[in-house]
Amino acid sequence: MNASAASLKTRLFEAAELRLPALTRLKRVEALPVVLDRRRIYVLPTRFGLMLSVLLLVMLLGALNYNNNPALLLTCLLAAAAYQSVFTAFGTLNRLQIHALRAEPCHAGGELELGIHFHTAARARHSLHVSAGAAQIGFDLDADGAATLRIPAPHRGWLRPGRLRVSSEYPFGLFQVWSWINPDFAALVYPRLEADPPPLPYAGATSPAFADRVAGDELAALRDYQAGDPPRNIAWKASARRDELLVKEFETLRGHEVVLDPATLRGLAYEARISRLAAWVCMAETRRVPYALRLPDVRIEAGLGDAHRHACLRALALAPGAAP
């Protein structure tokens, strides 16, 4: 019942946007940075604000009826403070700049951590809320900074967070100010990883024992830590000496590589193949086995390393059938 009402509301909203873009003014995607100003900040009293105004009315009637001027003064003072809080509320959003959105790719089924970067124009901004769909977060900004919104990412491909609603009920919760931004931004969602993938498909008659040797031995060099390096490759002793994280670099053994090709995976559904390939990409990367990707329209030669992994996952994420 509730869900159908919600979907009806969404449909109505979409229809309104289609028909009356001038009214909603929300449809256009805009480039960042976006500065919130009075043309796009909306204000309405909250339910609590309406409740307080009813109470103020009762107080006013009481003070007038008893002809009690000090009581009237007190009522006026409270009413004026309550009413003027609308300016503070407006000031919470006014001149707030959203200058960047950032998100590291995540895998489908997980949550996209969308970093929203703000410039506060040298004013502390209290109790801001940002929401996109069901995801929402509340935070304070004392200086320029970022907030992280966790958006569920159900499908691989491009994820558009869509309209973001920036709102605040600061200072007293009597008025809500809000603004919509529809940033030109999309984050890439990698395919879902198969939970328990079979071993890597080594070309020819390579034995698993050989694969293990490849993975474990032949320490070639140490390099600086980069985001995404598996923790077990960190050279803890060497890191402790150098005061920065170092990672063990293994020798890549040419000629012993895996070729990841969906065509070899007969008997699996299309999305399941992509899932498995993605899982294999990650597995090969952690075991330091060079891997190549053969997709119908993308060919990536064998290689190793973060950039290679991202390229492969990206190709898989954008394989036909991905979210637009």
């Binding site: 006013l60 002809n67 001027n69 006026c76 003072l77 004026a80 403070a81 003027q84």
Partner: peptide, 20 residues
């Protein structure tokens, strides 16, 4: 501060609000 800022508006309402 909110209260102090509200004082002018409150006085204005107090002075001009029609009495019963």
């Amino acid at each position: 501060l909110a209260l102090a800022g509200a004082l002018p508006l409150a006085l204005c309402a107090f002075v001009f609000f029609p009495r019963l």
